[in-house]
Amino acid sequence: MLCAVYKSKKKADTYLYVKEKDDFSDVPESLLSVFGQPQFVMLVPANKRPRIAGIERERFLESMNEQGYYLQMPPKPENLLQSYRASLGLSNKNTNNESNG
């Protein structure tokens, strides 16, 4: 299965995979309006890679078969404060001294 990959001009590091080049008929209009005008990047042989779009091939193909597309979002940024506190063995709870009552 060849998939067409498009990048978003509105959302950094966001990619849309569709079954056929320039066929967005399965993609919801609301998603396309947020994604913006898709910019073609490449064709990818999805069945020849163990991982595609950062996930296992089976999960990717399942999404493509059920929805007709796959949306690859950028990874969430690491919370450096939480990582630092965890490395010190501290709680990640809110540390401000404000009263909630």
Rank of each mutant, 00 (worst) to 15 (best):
C3Y: 02
S99V: 13
A53P: 01
C3A: 09
G89R: 14
K7P: 04
Y15V: 03
F24K: 02
N97C: 07
R49E: 11
A53T: 02
Q72F: 11
S87F: 13
Y69S: 00
E56G: 03
R49S: 07
Q37Y: 09
S33Q: 15
T95Y: 13
Q37E: 15
R57V: 02
S91M: 08
V44P: 00
Y70K: 05
F40A: 03
N100E: 13
V27S: 09
V44S: 03
K48M: 09
I52V: 15
Y84K: 12
K19W: 08
L81H: 05
Y69Q: 05
R59F: 02
K93Y: 12
P28V: 06
V18E: 07
K11G: 04
G68K: 01
P77R: 15
P74T: 02
D23P: 05
L43M: 15
Q72T: 10
S87D: 04
E29A: 07
S91R: 05
S8Y: 03
K48P: 02
Q67A: 14
I55Q: 07
P28L: 08
D26P: 00
N96D: 15
E66H: 09
L71S: 04
G36C: 05
T95A: 14
A4Q: 00
D13Q: 06
N96E: 14
Y17T: 03
N96K: 08
A4K: 05
T95L: 14
P38M: 08
V44N: 02
M1P: 05
K11I: 09
Y70H: 15
P28E: 00
L2D: 10
P45N: 10
Y70E: 04
F35E: 04
L80E: 12
E20Y: 05
N94W: 06
M64F: 03
Q39E: 13
N100Y: 14
N100A: 12
N100C: 12
R85F: 08
E66S: 06
M64L: 09
T14F: 00
G101R: 07
K9A: 09
G68E: 12
K10H: 06
L81R: 06
P77I: 04
E29Y: 06
L43H: 13
K93T: 14
M42V: 05
Q67P: 02
